[in-house]
Design a protein around this nucleic acid. Structure first.
Length: 770
DNA sequence: CACAGGTCTCTTTTT
DNA sequence: GAGACCTGTG
C-alpha cells in the first residue's frame, strides 16, 4: 500500500491538494466537492507517508461537530494518532492556549467565558453607572461596535484615537475601555477576547509564539472564507515560520460578514502568501445536476467572485420544486405533512429531511406542525440550551465557585432561589465593591462592614457566602456531576421546581437532568476533568454540535446553521422578498453588497441538497403582528424554468382586487392550483397529504445511476480470516471487509489493541503468513 | 421584598 | 407575537 493507493481514491485536483504538503496552499473547494475528504486524506498522508508527528498538526474547523467528524474519519483511516492532533474551533484552540499562559495574558487560569447574556449584564451595569440614555445608544449596539472593533484587532486605545471628534463613537470608546476593565476585573473574556487576547499574547511574547510555531508545523483551516481579521492574524502568526498553511474555503459560501468575516482573506490569499499554490475543486459529488444548475444560476448574479462552475457526474435528478402558499401556516403544514407522508410510505426516513429557513422566528410554525402530525424533529438554534434560565443559574453557581471574582455570576445567584436579598441590597453590595475596588463576592463576605445594610440583611448575605465557601471545599473532592446535584439539593432549587409541578417546571427539571448527564459524560470523556474545563466546554458548544446523526428526526434550522451539512431532501422555506433576502439587506445603504451576502446564503442552502430540493414561500406572512404581502424572492426568479418548477406568471397577483376581505385568496388559489398543485378539497382536518400525486409522482432515476468507482477486485492482498500486519498495531486477524464504495473498510482484530476499523488505502495492511 | 399586570421594543444570521 | 422592562399593590 503505497502513496498511489491513497491517491487512486481521489480525483486529480484532490490528489494535488493532498500531495502539496509544503508551503501555503489555497484550496478553493466548491460546495460538495469533497473538501473534508481532502483534509482528512491530507492529514492521513502527512502522518502515514510523510512521517509527520500527529502532535505537529493543527486543524481548525468551524464547529465542534465538524472537528469531531474530522477526527473520527482520520481515526478510521490511520487507526491511531488522531488524539494527538489538535482538531478544534478557533475559539476552543485559543482558550486552550490562553489557559496555559493565562498569567502572561493578565488573567488567572480560571478565567470564565462570557456569553451574549453575560456581556449584556455587564453592559447594562455600565450604562446604569454612567447614566447613559438607551434612547441615545443601546447596550446591544455598543456591544456590536465593540465586537466589530475586536474582530479587527482594534483595542480601546486605538478605538479612541480613531473616533476622535465624533461624539457618539467617542462615547463608545469610553464604554469599550470600561467594559474591558470590567471583564478583566471579573477574570472573564467574551468570545471575541478569546481570539484577540491570543493574538496579543503572541505579539507580546515572542517566546510563546515560537513555542507554538515550532509545534504546529502543519496547519489547516477549514471554512477559511469566514475568518475575520483577528483569526487571520492568529493563523498567519502561527504559520509565519514554516508557512505550511493549507486553507480550504469557498468565497461563494461566505455568509458571516455580520460577524466580522473578511472575504478578502480568501480573495487575496495569493497576494498575502506569494509562494502559494491554488487548487480548485469543482467536481461536485453531492447533488444532482438540476440542483447544481439552480445553485449556479443563482450565484452567477454575484460580482467579484473567483470564477468557478460546479459540475457533476451525478444524474440530472428531479426538477427543483417551488410551491407557494396562502400563508406561513399552510406552508408549514405542507412541509410537515409531505415529510410525514413520504416517511410513512416507506420511501424515506425522517433524518433524510432538513427544513431550512432564514430566521429563527420561522421555526415555531414548523415545530407546531411537526408536533401535530407526529413528525419527530430536532430544532437547532434559537434559544440555546445553555442559555435557559435554570441552566444559567446552575452554571452561575459553578462559575462563582470556580472563579470567585466573576461578578456577573455571583450577582445572578445571590438571590436564587429566594433568600430575601433584594435589588436594593445587591446595589448596596455592588457599590461597596466598586468603592473599595474588590469583587462583588468579597464585598458580600464583608457584609457586616457595609453600614447601610441592616444586621438582619447582613445575616442573610452571610448565609449565602458561607454556603458558597462550603461548596468550594466540596468542589475539591466532588466530580462536576456530584457538585451540580449537591447544589440543586442544598439550595432547594430542585425541590422548588418539584413542588411547583407545572408543565414549565417539569421541563426545567428535565433540562437540569440533561445538564447533569452532560456533566457526567464530560467527567468520563475528558482527559483531566476540571470545573473550568466543563464550564469552557459548555460555553463553546454550538447548538449544531449536539446534533446526533443517528437520530431519526427531521432537522429544523437556519440556513446559517446548515452550512457544512448535507441532506437527501432539503426544504428551503420562506423564499420571499423581505424575508430572504431580508428587508434589512434590501434597505441597507449598500444593498448590492448585502444582497450578495444573502445570495451566497441561498447558494449554501441549495447546495445542501443531495437529491431533492423544494422551495416554498407564502403570499403573505405575519410579521410583528401584522400580515405583510410578500413577493417571491428574487433568488427564485433567478433560476431558469429548465431547472425549477415555478409559476408561469412570475408575479401571480390577482388581476382583479379580491372581492371579499382577507388576502384575495380566491385568485391566488386559482393560480396556485394551476401552476403547482390543488389544495385538497376536503376540509382542514383531513389535510394531511397535500395532493401528493400532483406534486410529482416521481421515482428517483438518478439514485443508482452513477455507482461510485468500485475498487478493483483483487486489489486487496488479504481476505477475511487472514492474518495481516499493521505498521503500528502489529499482527491481527481480519474479521470483516466492507465495500465502502471508494475504498474497503477493513475490520481487524489486533490481540494487543483490540478491534479496529480502518480504510484499506490508508491502513497499509500487509498480508502476514501464519 | 415579591409578584402581577401593563407597556414598549424588536429581529436577521452565531462562535 | 414574545420577551424585556417598568410600575403599582400587597
Amino acid at each position: 500500500m503505497e502513496t498511489n493507493d491513497i491517491l487512486t481514491r481521489l480525483n486529480k485536483e484532490q490528489q494535488e491538494a493532498v500531495l502539496q504538503t509544503e508551503g501555503p496552499v489555497l484550496i478553493l473547494a466548491g460546495a460538495g466537492s469533497g473538501k473534508t475528504r481532502v483534509l482528512v486524506h491530507r492529514i492521513a498522508y502527512l502522518i502515514n507517508v510523510c512521517g509527520v508527528d500527529p502532535y505537529s498538526i493543527l486543524a481548525i474547523t468551524f464547529t465542534n461537530k465538524a472537528a469531531d467528524e474530522m477526527r473520527s474519519r482520520v481515526d478510521d483511516m490511520i487507526g491511531f494518532g488522531s488524539r494527538e492532533i489538535w482538531v478544534m474551533t478557533f475559539h476552543a484552540c485559543c482558550v486552550r492556549i490562553l489557559r496555559r499562559h493565562a498569567e502572561e495574558a493578565g488573567y488567572t487560569r480560571y478565567f470564565t467565558i462570557y456569553d451574549t447574556d453575560d456581556q449584556l449584564s455587564v453592559m447594562k451595569d455600565i450604562f446604569k453607572r454612567r447614566g447613559i440614555d438607551t434612547k441615545f445608544l443601546k447596550e446591544r449596539t455598543a456591544l456590536g461596535m465593540i465586537s466589530g472593533a475586536k474582530n479587527e484587532l482594534v483595542g480601546p486605545d486605538e478605538y479612541a484615537r480613531m473616533t476622535r471628534g465624533d461624539y457618539m463613537t467617542g462615547q463608545v470608546a469610553d464604554i469599550y475601555d470600561e467594559y474591558q476593565k470590567r471583564l478583566r476585573e471579573n477574570n472573564a473574556m467574551d468570545f471575541d477576547d478569546l481570539i484577540m487576547n491570543t493574538v496579543i499574547l503572541f505579539e507580546q511574547h515572542p517566546e510563546i509564539l515560537d513555542l507554538y510555531r515550532e509545534r504546529f508545523r502543519y496547519m489547516m483551516v477549514d471554512e477559511y472564507q469566514d475568518t475575520n481579521t483577528a483569526q487571520f492574524r492568529f493563523v498567519s502568526l502561527l504559520a509565519g515560520k514554516y508557512k505550511n498553511l493549507c486553507v480550504v474555503g469557498d468565497d461563494d459560501q461566505s455568509i458571516y460578514k455580520f460577524r466580522g468575516a473578511n472575504i478578502r482573506n480568501i480573495l487575496n490569499f495569493e497576494q498575502i502568501f506569494p509562494e502559494s499554490r491554488v487548487i480548485k475543486l469543482e467536481q461536485n459529488y453531492r447533488s444532482t445536476q438540476n440542483i447544481l444548475n439552480c445553485a449556479n444560476e443563482v450565484i452567477r448574479n454575484n460580482r467579484g467572485r473567483k470564477s468557478k462552475r460546479l459540475w457533476t457526474e451525478n444524474g440530472t435528478g428531479n426538477r427543483v420544486r417551488f410551491v407557494r402558499f396562502e400563508n406561513a401556516y399552510e406552508e408549514a403544514e405542507f412541509v410537515a405533512s409531505e415529510i410525514g407522508r413520504r416517511v410513512r410510505s416507506g420511501e424515506r426516513s425522517y433524518k433524510d429531511f432538513a427544513v431550512l429557513y432564514r430566521t429563527n422566528a420561522q421555526s415555531r410554525l414548523f415545530e407546531e406542525k411537526c408536533l401535530f402530525l407526529n413528525v419527530p424533529y430536532k430544532l437547532v438554534g434559537g434559544v440555546n440550551f445553555y442559555s435557559r434560565r435554570e441552566i444559567k443559574d446552575v452554571l452561575a453557581y459553578l462559575k462563582t465557585i470556580d472563579n470567585a471574582v466573576d461578578d456577573v455570576a455571583s450577582t445572578r445567584i445571590i438571590n436564587v432561589p429566594r433568600r430575601g436579598i433584594g435589588a436594593t441590597t445587591i446595589t448596596k453590595i455592588s457599590t461597596y465593591a466598586f468603592d473599595s475596588g474588590c469583587s462583588f463576592f468579597d464585598a458580600a463576605l464583608s457584609a457586616d462592614n457595609i453600614s447601610s445594610l441592616s444586621s438582619a440583611t447582613a445575616k442573610k448575605v452571610r448565609g449565602f457566602t458561607d454556603f458558597i465557601n462550603d461548596l468550594r471545599q466540596d468542589a475539591k473532592e466532588l466530580t462536576v456531576e456530584e457538585l451540580i446535584k449537591k447544589i440543586l439539593k442544598d439550595t432547594g432549587y430542585r425541590k422548588e421546581l418539584e413542588v411547583e409541578d407545572t408543565e414549565e417546571s417539569r421541563e426545567r427539571l428535565e433540562n437540569l437532568d440533561e445538564l447533569i448527564s452532560k456533566a457526567a459524560s464530560y467527567g468520563e470523556t475528558a482527559e483531566h476533568p476540571t470545573l473550568s474545563g466543563f464550564l469552557e466546554e459548555v460555553a463553546l458548544i454550538a447548538d449544531i454540535d449536539t446534533v446526533d446523526d443517528g437520530d431519526d428526526r427531521v432537522l429544523l434550522m437556519t440556513l446559517h446553521s446548515a452550512k457544512g451539512l448535507e441532506f437527501p431532501i432539503v426544504f428551503m422555506a420562506g423564499m420571499e422578498e423581505g424575508l430572504f433576502p431580508s428587508a434589512m439587506s434590501i434597505r441597507a445603504e449598500n444593498p448590492d453588497e448585502e444582497i450578495e451576502e444573502e445570495r451566497r446564503l441561498c447558494y449554501v442552502g441549495i447546495t445542501r441538497a443531495r437529491e431533492e430540493l423544494i422551495m416554498t414561500a407564502a403570499y403573505a406572512r405575519m410579521v410583528r403582528g401584522e400580515y405583510e404581502p410578500h413577493p417571491v424572492s428574487r433568488f427564485v426568479r433567478e433560476i431558469s424554468r429548465d431547472s425549477i418548477d415555478q409559476p408561469r406568471a412570475a408575479a401571480p397577483k390577482p388581476a382583479v382586487p379580491a372581492p371579499k376581505g382577507g388576502l384575495g385568496s380566491d385568485m391566488r388559489d386559482a393560480i396556485n392550483k394551476s401552476a403547482y398543485a390543488p389544495k385538497p378539497q376536503n376540509d382542514r382536518k383531513e389535510k394531511s397529504g397535500y395532493g401528493s400525486s400532483t406534486y410529482s409522482p416521481y421515482s428517483n432515476p438518478y439514485r443508482k445511476k452513477t455507482p461510485l468507482p468500485a475498487v478493483e477486485s483483487g486489489v486487496l492482498s488479504y481476505g477475511v480470516g487472514d492474518k495481516v500486519r499493521h505498521k503500528k498495531f502489529g499482527l491481527g486477524t481480519v474479521t470483516n471487509i466492507r465495500d465502502g464504495g471508494r475504498d474497503y473498510e477493513v475490520t481487524v482484530d489486533f490481540p494487543a489493541w483490540g478491534v479496529k476499523k480502518m480504510f484499506a488505502a490508508f491502513a497499509k495492511l500487509e498480508k502476514a503468513e501464519d
